[in-house]
Design a binder for these strands. Structure first.
Lengths: 238, 238
DNA sequence: CGCCTCCTTGATCTTTCTCAAATCGAGTGG
DNA sequence: CCACTCGATTTGAGAAAGATCAAGGAGGCG
């Protein structure tokens, strides 16, 4: 269970807490790629824990422009904020076919009451997600396109290796250039050019759904990637 | 106490919970404008609750570029994420002289264990903050400068009116054009031009530390401002 | 085969940045 | 009261990053 693994990095979970966590994984469901799971503005939505596949959360503006806020990979929550805020402030779309576990607001709040440490752990996971959104914000605001792309793909690799889906060499990545454009605040055309530039300067290659690091150290430097905000040396709470 | 007021909007707090919250407000401190409270990379930092004044959280990139992630106003947490993640992933600078209450990690985690509902409330507040960061991200990624500025200033007004610091007409705002530039991912020069444009088209005026709405309805429309993500009809938990 | 999605590349245009310089008001010391 | 400084604002001119428009190409699939 990728979620337990993730939370376990922060809070040393007891048997009871693991059992409560396991009980959240009862309602299993699957969704097909491309059909929204949650739609911006819906209220009283359930949250989900992503078991397999990729999804993205995004917002649509009036003029039809889309901004992807984050991609979700196995072990991530989908729509946790929507549950807490009572209304979905963003939409969620599966990028591939996905498997999820549905979690109702009452389940979650009940679990928190029974095992407060789990609440702390979830608060930690939410903070980590926010740290990624913040880094994303910084990238869009103050990095130019190539640096932004490099940083983004490095972060994704770092997250994926945490759940065993990436190696030092690279990772499988189902994102299209259109998705990258919507995530990075660029046009799809420019994404293409930037990827070409990264390939031609020997930093990384994104081709046929696979990201390959061509020179990891130089790439880290080029992107100014600092993995501190994703690292954690061990459980904070014992 | 602005924090109790804010959390009270989400969770109907009991006398015990209010007492625990009050106990967090023991260590009062003041800081002068311009000197960092928290510095990027510090570990085991305390968190603060802002009692009066304005602050901002930001990240500095290698090349010295700065991106302001969010401004904090009374009732907001400062550095909550840094406590949970064990390391500050951003810096915090007071924009005006400020008064804060220092909160240690242990106080906070202790309070959560004693009153789980408080943990839920703080999780809610954190989610609300994240929703604002997300909206900020969307603005930087997909809105052009004028729209971005208008949306940003409307959101700020909306947050301020929640704690009684803004009216329908406008609000006092200590931000310089340099701060706005660093927040919005623009150059200070362009911020100036955009403010002029908004003034000349009769939408809003930002002058002498005061934001005045010149035509609120047209401004809402121009910015595509949707206050849903800040609204809450009442306590979710009773 | 024909259609569809995604990727690729060229040409041109727009937004925003950078550099430069003038202005303005609040303090400060003489 | 005046000269001086300092931070913030304002405006202009030219440059650059990235957007938009347009058109092909390559692979998958009914």
């Amino acid at each position: 269970m990728p979620l337990a693994r993730k939370l376990g990095a922060f809070v040393a979970l007891s048997a009871v807490e693991l059992a409560v966590l396991d009980a959240l994984h009862k309602r299993r469901r699957t969704f097909v790629a491309g059909r929204d799971l949650v739609h911006q503005g819906q209220s009283d939505q359930a949250a989900y824990i992503l078991a397999s596949g990729w999804a993205c959360s995004y917002k649509i503006l009036r003029d039809g422009e889309r901004q992807i806020v984050d991609f979700q990979i196995p072990g991530d929550f989908l729509g946790l904020r929507s549950v807490l805020l009572h209304t979905a402030d963003h939409s969620i779309e599966p990028i591939t076919d996905i498997e999820v576990c549905e979690v109702h607001a009452s389940d979650l709040l009940g679990a928190f009451t029974r095992t407060p440490r789990l609440a702390t752990a979830v608060l930690w996971a939410a903070s980590r997600d926010e740290a990624m959104v913040v880094e994303h914000l910084v990238g869009i605001g103050r990095r130019h396109a190539a640096e932004r792309m490099a940083h983004f793909l490095l972060e994704l690799g770092s997250r994926l290796s945490l759940v065993g889906l990436a190696t030092k060499a690279g990772y499988a990545c189902p994102l299209t250039q259109y998705l990258l454009a919507d995530a990075l605040g660029l046009s799809a055309v420019h994404v293409n050019r930037v990827l070409r530039q990264l390939r031609e300067t020997g930093l990384l290659t994104f081709r046929d759904g696979y990201v390959t690091y061509d020179d990891y150290d130089r790439l880290l430097d080029f992107a100014g990637f600092d993995p501190v905000y994703l690292d954690h040396t061990g459980p904070l709470l014992r």
